[in-house]
Amino acid sequence: MKIETKNLSKNFGDKKALNHINLTIEPNKIIGLLGRNGAGKTTLLQLLAGHFKPSEGEILINGENPFNRSHVLEKVCLISEANNFKRKLKIREILKMISRFYPNWSQPTAERLLKIFNLAPSLNAKGLSKGMESALSIIIGLSSRTDITIFDEPYIGMDAYARYRFYAILLEEYEAYPRTIIISTHLIDEVSNLFEDVVLMHDGSILLHESAEEMKNKSLQISGSLEKVTAFSEGKNVIYTTQIMGQKTVFIYGEKAIEEQQAKAMGLSVERCSIQELMVHLTNSQEEGLYV
């Protein structure tokens, strides 16, 4: 399902959580939604899941506003970090209840995942550890098989083993049943190879929306002698600089591949930046003066 926002804003009192966002997400891609705390990621996702109305503008799922429209919302599953199971229910009962919301629910997937994550259906959901609770949320997200499945920092308390299992199963599920999957996370390095597109948010706005590969292609990490690197980077979009022992490294964003050949010809060392490094430095560049 296609997702579109037009001039979308959301205010909470005086705080502008989202500021006139225009975004189009084509169907059946795995999207990484990145940004620092308070960037507006969760607000955007909650609007998508119809939790509240926009203050201004609109959000459309296949042309329809999700708020209060159950035939749209049954195709959107938002798994959020605060997805606590407070009521005294067994895992089996919770899954049964939730499965009624989602017409595409896959019970075999749910049962397989319960085994993989070592959760007995007879367990009481209230007494689960943080990690087990996260695993249960993830099981719900993957089994829902909704056209739009959203994971908002889903794995608080999950150990590295469980997280890697999650990534592997996510990929399997995506291949078996392609759908739009949006992952918002701070553990970017672990998961960035799964992203087809990246949406980077900052201060309630979209800083960039690009294919993950293009984003990496536009980045260069140039190292070499202070003089040469300074000469090379002049007039270019430098997002990060560091130096030691007469050597300098700069991160450059938005340049064409031809720059790479130039740098190599000057005997400079050329690498690409990881998505995580780009997120850190791109969302910092506005306030660079503070950190120098």
Partner: peptide, 17 residues
Amino acid sequence: SNEFAKYYQINPATAAK
């Protein structure tokens, strides 16, 4: 591409490319 995606844990579209 799916086999590569699974092996390297990457997006299948990347492998397909």
